[in-house]
Design a protein around this nucleic acid. Structure first.
Lengths: 353, 353
DNA sequence: CTGAAAGCGCTTACAG
DNA sequence: CTGAAAGCGCTTACAG
């Protein structure tokens, strides 16, 4: 593509070759029946003249923009950028552009964001809903990334199974008392993870769940979790429901003079940057975001196709995407007995799942 | 907007009212001279019929899509989501949609990302360049967010001045030996921050810079920074050039039994989530991202307007945007002498700046 | 102040 | 296999 010259149009190619623009269109799209020779000549001319398709014209004519929207809740959850990146990749591969919309704050913002995208003419959208919000029929194809236990969910990681992996990991390391740390009882994702963790730990391990939400409500935000007391009570495992909580737990333990990993193990979920940056680095569970993104884009593509055939909206739904497996990333894997069980692999308890 | 009925067009409004579509267009855009009464009637009809403008048609006709591109480098830098959010806000307020493109990996990806956006017909784009890359004339209006010392920079925080604030903060707390922790010598942003830190600390305070890059080259990634030794050497201040490094420093110190903030102070830059989540929370410098975003969008808007008048590209450039101030967020502000100087405010040394 | 007309660049039946 | 024609919905000179 030479800089400076404006991009050529189909009409110009047609004029240069003495053919009709319909033929140019057919040759370039490969749809109409155009002879191989002419087709080749046209393709070459397009190349030489620096043809760039006009998305606007195509959109006006076909009613499809080739753009999908991505609605993300408050950015304060540091996982979302990675989702955005994965979606952008998958969308680009499928020929879609991605228009972003942020729905931080109230649920009303989410509705507004969706409205803006519709006005811009997106062919469909992928939404990661705000906690506790339901995305109804919005008159446009939608794919939803939330949790398998959410009604209307299109694609998500298998948070429950992930929790189970982590629970088994703790079990295999020989922990007897494990504290589960979560933040919101309203979060489907967190509830799934907690459920899985309990199942993975099994009946022989004592576990208790600390809901930070309650803690902050009663003592004000920013209060410590009181983990040192738990260690005194015999807890050696601390399994947080996402990495930020794990980070909080780790630093609080360290601050209070508890040696991690010698006296306690800490784990999180999502494998965000700092899980591996912190010393000691923490064990976590990585989501397969590229698969999730691909599933979402594919499902949305189908929904878009369907919405043309059928009349109205269609919620995307495909098999094999509702429970994308997560991957355990074991980092400081020391058990309670000063590191003697370090390399034990995942224990195959059969009492659950 | 009633669901189910397809959005009305200008032509339909015109038909319903028995006027021409040109008049409808003029009334709705407020450009042409249309009588107040007719104008009101048209606006009302538009409302009732559920008029939604066709961006595609407008784009085809005017040659402008009302969409700008946002090119971001590797997401692994957790500041970028916040930038993205701020840009989306500012762009929406200015009537633009935001198409994202990710340029992780090689510089070639950045070029490819820019190309994709141009093909999609964006009116212009905002790019946060990859370290060490230069954005030349790309035939489309561009605004660049980097650092004041980068040639071609459009808008950025005043990283140098921010560094100076932080340096003075350490000075005011009475530290004698401060270790500066940075990662890449190629980063303009990091160099600016280091320069400012040194100036803010002044000549009386001993400071040294640890380049982690060198460390990893010689000892492999993931190696400890050896900060405990520094404490033994009398260092009490640890000023990292971004929060992730600060986090690493904090946990390493704590792991090695150093009490923060009693024996050492740790600070970062950017005020990312975890700076306030960690215990103890760390002092940092917050960028004014909404101002930066607004400046970038405004500058880009001017560049887009110019590019229609003049012939070719124009690089955005506006006053007052090249050095947006940063804000100190003091958290654990203890000096080296076991907390006696906790609440000292910023020291007004005059030996620099 | 209002309208008729052209045209942005493409695609899609429909003829030939 | 190829072309002429219409039209997607808007905006913009230009007449009236």
């Amino acid at each position: 593509m030479s800089v400076g010259r404006p991009p050529a149009t189909m009409t110009e190619i047609a004029a240069a070759l003495g053919v009709s623009s319909a033929t140019v269109s057919n040759a370039l799209s490969g749809k109409g029946r155009v002879s191989a020779e002419l087709s080749a000549k046209i393709r070459q001319a397009a190349e030489e003249l620096g043809y760039v398709p006009s998305h606007a014209a195509r959109a006006l004519r076909t009613g499809r923009t080739g753009v999908i929207g991505l609605v993300l809740p408050d950015i304060s959850n540091p996982l979302f950028p990675q989702i955005a990146q994965a979606i952008e990749q998958a969308a680009a591969a499928a020929g879609y552009g991605v228009l972003i919309a942020d729905s931080r704050g109230e649920t009303a913002q989410q509705t507004a964001a969706i409205g803006r995208l519709i006005e811009r003419g997106v062919d469909g959208m992928i939404v990661v809903p705000r906690r506790g919000s339901r995305i109804g029929d919005i008159g446009t194809p939608v794919a939803i990334i939330d949790s398998p236990s959410t009604p209307g969910n299109t694609v998500s990681s298998d948070h429950w199974e992930g929790g189970m992996q982590m629970g088994r990991h703790f079990a295999s390391l020989g922990h007897d008392k494990v504290l589960l740390i979560a933040q919101s009882r309203e979060s489907n994702v967190q509830n799934d993870r907690i459920g899985g963790l309990k199942a993975g730990l099994g009946d022989d391990i004592c576990c208790e769940t600390l809901w930070v939400e309650d803690l902050e409500a009663s003592q004000g935000a920013g209060s410590a979790f009181g983990l040192a007391d738990r260690v005194a009570d015999g807890f050696t495992g601390f399994a947080a429901v996402y990495d930020l909580l794990a980070l909080r737990a780790l630093t609080e333990l360290q601050r209070d003079g508890i040696d991690v990993p010698l006296q306690a193990s800490v784990s999180g979920f999502d494998d965000l940057v700092w899980s591996s940056v912190v010393i000691p680095s923490i064990t976590t569970l990585r989501q397969n975001l590229s698969t999730i993104a691909e599933c979402a884009v594919e499902a949305l593509g189908h929904a878009i196709a369907d919405s043309e055939t059928l009349s109205g909206t269609s919620i995307a739904g495909r098999p094999n995407c509702e429970r994308v497996p997560m991957m355990l990333v074991a980092r400081h894997s020391t058990g309670p007995a000063s590191g003697s069980v370090v390399s034990a692999s995942v224990n195959a308890r059969k009492d659950s799942g």
